[in-house]
């Protein structure tokens, strides 16, 4: 059983390291800032989580494993917020993305099913 845990954590750590390096390589290869952000999110999500899962198996059921959970929570709750702020700031600064296809002008289909009932019910809309 201990051997299985040992090998599992080894595999997880090796895979996580692979995705970290791949994401960093992507940040070098991609042509503009928006596409680089996709490469960076490979580091932030898959690379980091696999590595941390591997470390958690090594730590066992201790406070250290709990702290690793906090590290994951930090990355998962604040990572997208930072990416979103970065993308919005770059758009605001008129940095034109390299696009193969621009569908920003497309008509967005109306909400499926739920829309009429919401108007009749007159529920409060927190977004207003």
């Amino acid at each position: 059983m201990e051997m299985i845990a040992f090998y599992a954590s080894w595999v997880l750590i090796a895979l996580g390291s692979f995705f970290l390096v791949a994401g960093a390589l992507g940040m070098l290869r991609m042509p503009d800032v928006y596409t680089r952000m996709h490469a960076a999110s490979v580091i932030d999500t898959l690379g980091a989580t696999l590595l941390v899962f591997g470390l958690m198996i090594q730590a066992g059921l201790t406070l250290v494993a709990l702290k690793l959970v906090f590290v994951l929570a930090l990355l998962f709750f604040f990572g997208p917020v930072a990416s979103h702020a970065l993308a919005q700031a770059a758009l605001h600064a008129d940095i034109e993305p390299i696009l193969a296809e621009d569908r920003r002008g497309r008509d967005v289909p109306p909400k499926a099913g739920e829309d009429p009932s919401r108007k009749e019910g007159g529920q409060h809309d927190p977004r207003q």
Partner: peptide, 20 residues
């Protein structure tokens, strides 16, 4: 923005480096 993105990734990698 490329530099800010790289700075953000450096932060993530630094956390992982500290952990490992």
């Amino acid at each position: 923005f490329d530099r800010a993105l790289a700075g953000n990734s450096i932060g993530t990698l630094a956390i992982l480096l500290l952990a490992s």
